[in-house]
Simulated assay, not measured.
Amino acid sequence: MSRVPGAVHLVSTDGPAGSGGFTATAVTSVADTPPTLLVCANGANRSCGRLIENGVFGVSTLSHADEELAAAFAGRTGIYGEDRFRLGRWTRLVTGSPVLETAIAGFDCRVIEARPLATHLVIFGEVVGVHLGPAQPALVYRGRRFHGL
């Protein structure tokens, strides 16, 4: 799968269980009525647990300029927890989940279902808010490296 390019996203949450976030390429549209996204996440990830407990999440589709954020939320920089949210500019939409202002697109979602599958959770979210950032080159992941597109 490392040979298959994928768009890079930040998945974020905030609520009673606390804030959290992670970098993901396993994000896709599922339906348009109601608008629904699917996110796959490692079930052992603390941020994934917080997302499920909070019942809400944001998805920020990253531009090539956001590579530093992608690395930080992937745990590659030694920056963890709340400190990662000090990077970049964030906004909140309907659910209160953080969405990156500079994202190519941001989606605010309510969890409608989460299914365990092997080591991961497949999370379905109904889109309740959208943020469109500046049109710019996308960030993709291929060959275990980030690239601009």
Rank of each mutant, 00 (worst) to 15 (best):
M1G: 13
M1N: 04
M1F: 05
M1V: 08
S2T: 02
P5M: 03
V11H: 04
S12T: 15
G15P: 04
A17L: 10
G18M: 09
S19F: 03
F22I: 07
A26F: 07
T28E: 08
S29N: 11
S29W: 12
D32V: 11
T33E: 13
P34E: 09
P35Y: 07
P35F: 09
P35W: 09
L38N: 02
L38W: 06
V39M: 02
C40V: 15
C40T: 14
A44I: 06
R46I: 07
R46Q: 08
S47C: 04
C48N: 03
G49S: 09
G49A: 13
G49P: 02
I52T: 01
N54S: 11
G55D: 06
V56N: 10
T61V: 15
E68G: 11
E68K: 08
E68P: 06
L69P: 10
A71N: 03
A72H: 03
R76N: 00
R76P: 00
G78N: 05
I79T: 15
I79N: 02
Y80W: 07
G81L: 10
G81K: 06
E82K: 13
D83T: 01
D83M: 03
R84F: 09
R84N: 10
F85Y: 14
F85C: 12
F85D: 11
R86H: 13
G88V: 05
R89F: 00
W90A: 05
T91Q: 08
R92E: 15
L93I: 13
L93T: 05
V94N: 00
P98R: 05
P98I: 04
V99I: 15
L100I: 11
E101G: 08
E101W: 12
T102G: 10
T102I: 07
A103C: 15
A103E: 06
I104F: 06
I104Q: 03
A105R: 15
A105F: 12
F107M: 10
C109V: 09
C109L: 10
I112K: 13
E113I: 00
E113N: 11
R115G: 01
P116N: 10
L117S: 13
A118D: 13
T119P: 09
L121D: 01
I123V: 15
I123Q: 08
F124M: 15
V127W: 04
H131W: 10
L132A: 05
G133H: 03
G133Y: 02
P134M: 01
A135V: 12
P137H: 05
V140Y: 13
G143F: 00
R145S: 14
H147L: 15
